[in-house]
Write a protein that binds this DNA or RNA. Structure first.
Lengths: 233, 233
DNA sequence: TGCGTCATTATGTCTAGACATAATATGAGG
DNA sequence: CCTCATATTATGTCTAGACATAATGACGCA
């Protein structure tokens, strides 16, 4: 007879429950793995795996010899998804269109060439976001061949270029007169500005600045204390 | 002789490297676990563990029977830290102050009581953020005893109340005349609005709306493709 | 008392093998 | 040619045992 279909999961959820219910407060020592193994009737490796997942979730801390402890107040962080605009707009049921305004290849003396692209993302034929993007041609030579007049650079890059780290800065700004005109809104309108720098290793790949009309766009971030879960878990 | 001090890690880093270098492009099939085990001279469980970590990192997808594949464009998501304002301002080297404007206990017929708190966060005696918070007293009875005229509710809640999930919505809005006055800025100024709903299980704990002057506050989010690593790994 | 050493302990990692499970590929029958 | 049942296959999970490693705490010596 199998003890249970999913011991590791059962252990994880049990401990999660005790932490969330407040039964085990931050700093509380969790029984040693041997004991948990005995209690749940499984191997120590299974307990260890469950605890490992709880560590990854930020709920538990482990120290050799000392033991496992309930982690101190979960860091208040959230996973923000920065979607590909084409997909996001399609998901809303509106037709997406990209319109390039200017594509400039900049030859920097001594430095690497860059490609700078200005354009507008449309949703249902209304301007949705302004974008200015800089691509480092040294890191992304293939970009010189891509036709950004037709395909949005974000979509193209996502499909072609691997990156390893990114930094986002979100800020509220007032639209300048030019920006307001391009976004079909009033001068000084509140806009959400999203800046993103992307690197591969320690070398910059691309920089984007996207400007959204504040009344047309929200950024949503979710956080599950416990697990950065992937679907149906 | 031991094969190597850290096979799992070696495997993970090797595969990571191949993906980031572009040698294995998105969609590429990764050799089956048996073969990797043979190649690296270790047990299949070890390979499986390494692949599991790469899945958690979003670099790899695994499908039963089909095999393991290099994941398609890493989901463009980022970890956004939503700091406690008192800490954030202290970290800037400015003095923090909370000023409550109105504390209202709302008795809702048939529903649970709520506590609504309006106030302002100050940094260096300048208004930094407006806040309106609603606390569900059914979930947080202790809140009735707390003195929110003195202590900021966010700080108090973080220290006292466990939560399990949160949802954030970030938006750019124009300040109303009242809001602008409270923030010492002009009417219609672009502000970053952060709304946060927090739950314990499926029951709401608190709702906050914070309004920041756009020229005084950024939200920064970082993302490391590869691993939501914790220290020195 | 104070300090360095060493045994102990709990986690960290790995192995070899087993069985479960889901999805694909194959083949039989219509 | 299409459809459904079946065999195959690669991942998913678990076990029992082994050894590594780091940190603690106890012991003994100065």
């Amino acid at each position: 007879m199998r003890a249970a279909p999913n011991p590791a999961r059962r252990i994880r959820e049990d401990i999660e429950g005790r932490i969330h219910s407040g039964e085990w407060k931050p700093g509380t020592r969790i029984p040693i793995e041997q004991e948990l193994a005995a209690r749940y009737g499984c191997a120590r490796a299974t307990v260890s795996k469950a605890l490992g997942e709880l560590v990854a979730a930020g709920l538990v801390e482990r120290r050799r010899k000392a033991g496992s402890f309930v982690a101190h107040p979960p860091v208040h962080s959230a996973v923000m998804t920065v979607p590909d605009l084409a997909e996001l707009i399609a998901a809303r049921g509106e037709t997406y269109r990209w319109e390039a305004r200017a594509i400039v290849r900049r030859k920097n003396a001594g430095e690497a060439d860059t490609l700078q692209i200005d354009g507008i993302h449309f949703a249902a034929d209304e301007p949705f976001a302004l974008e200015r993007r800089t691509i480092e041609l040294a890191e992304v030579p293939a970009a010189a061949e891509a036709n950004f007049a037709v395909e949005a650079p974000g979509t193209w890059l996502l499909a072609h270029i691997p990156w390893t780290s990114a930094r986002h800065v979100v800020r509220a700004v007032a639209a300048t007169r030019t920006e307001a005109k391009a976004l079909a809104t009033g001068s000084g309108a509140a806009c959400l500005q999203l800046e993103r720098d992307t690197w591969r290793g320690d070398r910059p790949v691309t920089h984007v600045r996207q400007l959204f009309r504040g009344d047309r766009f929200d950024l949503v971030a979710e956080f599950q204390a416990g697990m950065p879960r992937r679907e149906g878990d």
